[in-house]
Design a binder for these strands. Structure first.
Lengths: 345, 345
DNA sequence: ATGAAAGCGCTAACAT
DNA sequence: ATGTTAGCGCTTTCAT
């Protein structure tokens, strides 16, 4: 009656045999093609239902050629980071309007795993690939890219590969943060950053350094801590900074996770230092956290636009879109230097 | 010299031709099989590099049969919801230890889109499917399930399908919340819930109702608002509740997004009502938000365990794992009824 | 150590 | 309206 679990999934040939037609007719009937008699079609459908038949998309794609896939891949560092998940959301909605389906995988900031994920998706002939890469070179994508598979790099630019890119204006945002704190008179600013190899980190650091130079702050790097990759590490880094003598009067936390760690470290602090974070944080408006904000959803939308253009056959040189960053003053970043107890120097 | 973009990707046959060996030898050389002469191997590798060859995983899978896929699919309502992304994280880490790769797609709580995503993944013969389903019946998965594809339902149980399941103890958690507020003397409790068709919503509502009955609160449903699916809708719903006369003295927000909406609505409120939310919220500890907490990562891990068992050939009947829920009192839920201005009745 | 032939399940092209 | 043939790119026999 119904299928044997061990027998594996039924093929079109079995459906055809059961309904007494040829394989091609069965294919036509199930595929909704026009030239099929109504009763033939229903007979084939019944047979398929009875066998629990499902089209083998692998075989179909092999036969039809890759360009029929409706799947677009997205590789990001961490699903649980709201920056990435909002980016994914923007991308997904835009693709869906074109009937494309987004599948997302997490690299956990491991270049080797990233590569294996990219291989798995490319081997399955996804229609395109959007990637927030944690790797430091992308030459191995060159052949694939040349063969016409659209790549879009988001958040972090490609290295040794001329591909479409959507980036934040990291440098500008960090400069705003530095200038803001500098203008308020802060001279000892604890700066906590993510993995130092990431281009986003370096760009933000450059922007901040510019602002420090402009404000005439020497040796600002004395209060710099890098490679605080998760909330726990960030919290520890901030505690360590606050324990120094003299203590910093302000903090610049260079991404959303680090800001969360800082907020934990500052919890219950009698005279908390000023705080400006990069990236929005959930409830940041309610908590009054000043941040360098931007629009991750828009980043996703722009990436989708670039990708869809390529899918539609656009052949031009690689394009780059820059998403603006702006400072939102909500209170935490406006605390003056005196609020930090140990006002030495 | 290098490949023509229009020519499509090179096949193994082209690599073989260029290196002057048979297709099978090329396959062996590239696949790392033992019986190949060292210089043959390197010649084939060079030819592959030169052509920009990449294995066609579609063809490989067709030939080898589906059981070689390393991809596991996850379907969730919304990537940006931290509950789902943490669940995905737990699942992902567990699968990765077995060399399996997780790909996640978002249904946006649309049953039709969910079905299309499931079709796309099943047709490509993923190794297994984990699904937080928004659909109200799953009979269409029956054949696939019988043919041995492992399904695990998370957060929401399958309907008309006997498949492995991992659920929260929603009823218990909501009962705790209701009892907690009831014990403090609250009698008018604004209850805000998500889509009423979701089983999680119904179970939580049942649990809360039990607690209300036990506390002798009649007509608690007068302050019930359902179908507040996003933060904006939740904020509006809470504002409306607070505008009623008499106003509720407490709130039970039935998921994380609704809790966020409530926190926005309560911002700057002179005498905020007590608040207990279901699900953890980011910074909830710092803000002092009382919640019914649970462990989404563990939910992912348990789902992985069930899935891996099936992949390893386990044949038993469908199993169900229940993840415990507990109340975390952090301040917002412990405010007494009097704190709400309009103490009428 | 290498090669030839067959075939996975499907669809495009060409009959009828 | 339906059937026949061939072949997508790979791996699995089974030779040599």
């Amino acid at each position: 009656m119904t299928a044997d679990p061990k027998a594996g999934r039924p093929s079109l040939a079995q459906v055809a045999a059961l309904s007494g037609v040829s394989v091609k007719t069965a294919s036509r009937a199930l595929g909704g093609e026009p030239r099929v008699a109504a009763d033939t079609r229903s007979r084939v459908r019944e047979a398929a239902d009875q066998l629990g038949y499902r089209l083998n998309g692998v075989a179909r794609e092999l036969r039809r050629g890759a360009s029929t896939s409706t799947l677009v891949g997205l590789l990001i560092g961490d699903l649980a980071n709201p920056f990435y998940s909002r980016l994914a959301g923007g991308l997904e909605r835009e693709l869906r309007m074109r009937g494309l389906q987004l599948i997302t995988a997490s690299t956990d900031e491991d270049p080797e795993w990233e590569r294996r994920l990219a291989d798995a998706l490319l081997e399955r002939r996804v229609r395109g690939l959007v990637i927030a890469s944690t790797a430091t070179e992308h030459a191995h994508f060159a052949a694939e890219h040349r063969h016409g598979i659209p790549f879009v790099f988001v958040d972090r630019p490609p290295v040794d590969l001329a591909a479409d890119t959507v980036l934040l204006d990291n440098r500008h945002g960090a400069r705003l943060a530095g200038a803001h704190l500098g203008t308020l008179g802060h001279r000892r600013i604890g700066v906590v950053g993510d993995l130092s190899r990431l281009s986003t980190h370096r760009d933000r650091l450059d922007g901040f350094a510019e602002a420090m130079r402009a404000a005439g702050v020497e040796n600002w790097a004395d209060y710099l801590v890098e490679n605080a990759h998760d909330v726990v590490a960030a919290e520890r880094a901030v505690r360590d900074l606050l324990d120094r003598t003299p203590a910093p009067t302000a903090l610049f936390t260079m991404n959303n996770r680090i800001t969360l760690g800082a907020l934990r470290a500052l919890r219950g602090h009698p005279a908390p230092p000023a705080l400006v974070g990069f990236d929005e944080v959930d409830l940041g408006d309610i908590l009054g956290v000043s941040v360098v904000a931007h629009d991750p959803e828009d980043m996703g939308r722009q990436a989708a636009r670039l990708l869809l253009d390529r899918i539609d056959g656009h052949r031009g040189p690689a394009r780059q879109v820059v998403i603006p960053t702006r400072l939102l003053a909500r209170g935490s970043g406006e605390r003056p230097p005196t609020s930090a107890g140990t006002q030495a120097s």
